[in-house]
């Protein structure tokens, strides 16, 4: 049965779009039929991160308003054939996204795909609410930093009260994805540790993505990091998280960078 997953966070810039692309690609690389949907109307970026920015013809709003058929708007990934993108509109007003329209589109996507992954806009306004409303599963993306943790707490409260599942009295499955984690700084007490964040937010952990240069490089070239550097630390962490989402038991380890002598001596500049 299809699962609708929302990638959300409250705060902007914590890695929602990067994580949507990476988790979507990782699930597809493991054989599932996946669509990633950009809900950030007016500020779309998932197309750019996925490297499909020049292939956008129709978008989510066109489909919601009935100006285009779903199949016309879906962009199939050139690298993985079982991965598709439904882009957001760059120009339209976000009020064009109606609850009824979104419900119909999500329903159609459920019939076509195993995973419907919704990339939520930042904030707690209408767009974010619509992105989470139909979700069966939520991935809350959090940086180990006070403002991100606070906003995640707020979003968790909304997942528990403002989603279709919550309104039906059912529990929505929630997972915490910690991104931009620096094990060294956490060990030195300079950054909130994984345990600190888990204690405060108390939802199960689905993955720890270490801070990594590969993430920026992947978005520079327009590729999910699991495709751009599949053997890197960030990609390995995303692959593990995707397997956990699919129900597998995977030990929680933070992949570490294997540093050569030169980069040990001269830090990151030599990498």
């Amino acid at each position: 049965m299809a699962k609708v997953l929302v990638v959300t966070s409250g705060k902007g810039g914590v890695g929602k779009t990067t994580s949507t692309a990476a988790l979507g690609a990782a699930l597809a690389q493991n054989g599932a039929n996946v669509v990633v949907v950009d809900f950030d109307v007016g500020l779309r970026n998932l197309d750019l991160v996925m490297g499909a920015e020049r292939r956008v013809v129709y978008d989510l709003i066109n489909v919601v308003q009935g100006d285009a058929k779903l199949v016309q708007a879906l962009i199939r990934d050139k690298r993985i054939e079982n991965l598709s993108l439904l882009p957001a509109s760059q120009t339209r007003d976000k009020d064009a996204l109606t609850p009824e329209g979104v419900e119909r589109v999500i329903g159609e996507l459920r019939e076509k795909f195993d995973w419907v992954i919704c990339d939520s806009p930042a904030g707690i306004e209408k767009g974010a609410m619509l992105a989470m409303y139909h979700a069966d599963v939520a991935v809350v993306v959090t940086n180990p930093e006070v403002s991100s943790v606070r906003d995640s707490d707020r979003i968790i409260g909304m997942l528990d009260s403002k989603t279709a599942k919550a309104e039906r009295g059912e529990a929505i499955e929630k997972h915490l994805l910690i991104t931009r984690f620096d094990p060294g700084r956490a060990a030195r007490g300079e950054m909130l540790s994984i345990d600190d964040v888990l204690d405060i937010l108390s939802i199960p952990l689905v993955g720890i993505i270490p801070e990594s240069e590969e993430v920026l490089r992947a978005s520079n070239v327009g590729s999910p990091v699991t495709l751009a550097s599949p053997d890197g630390v960030a990609a390995r962490a995303y692959f593990d998280a995707a397997r956990r989402l699919a129900g597998e038991q995977v030990d929680m380890v933070v992949p570490m960078e294997r540093k050569g002598l030169m980069s040990r001596l001269f830090g990151r500049r030599v990498a």
Binding site: V146, A186, G189, E190, S193, I200
Partner: peptide, 26 residues
């Protein structure tokens, strides 16, 4: 002094209040 402990304590106090406040408003 390492600052993560301060961050944790500040968050715990703040969120305890905010959870009650949002719960009440709903």
């Amino acid at each position: 002094k390492p600052s993560a402990g301060i961050a944790r304590e500040r968050l715990q106090v703040l969120l305890a209040h905010e959870r009650i406040a949002t719960g009440h408003s709903e």
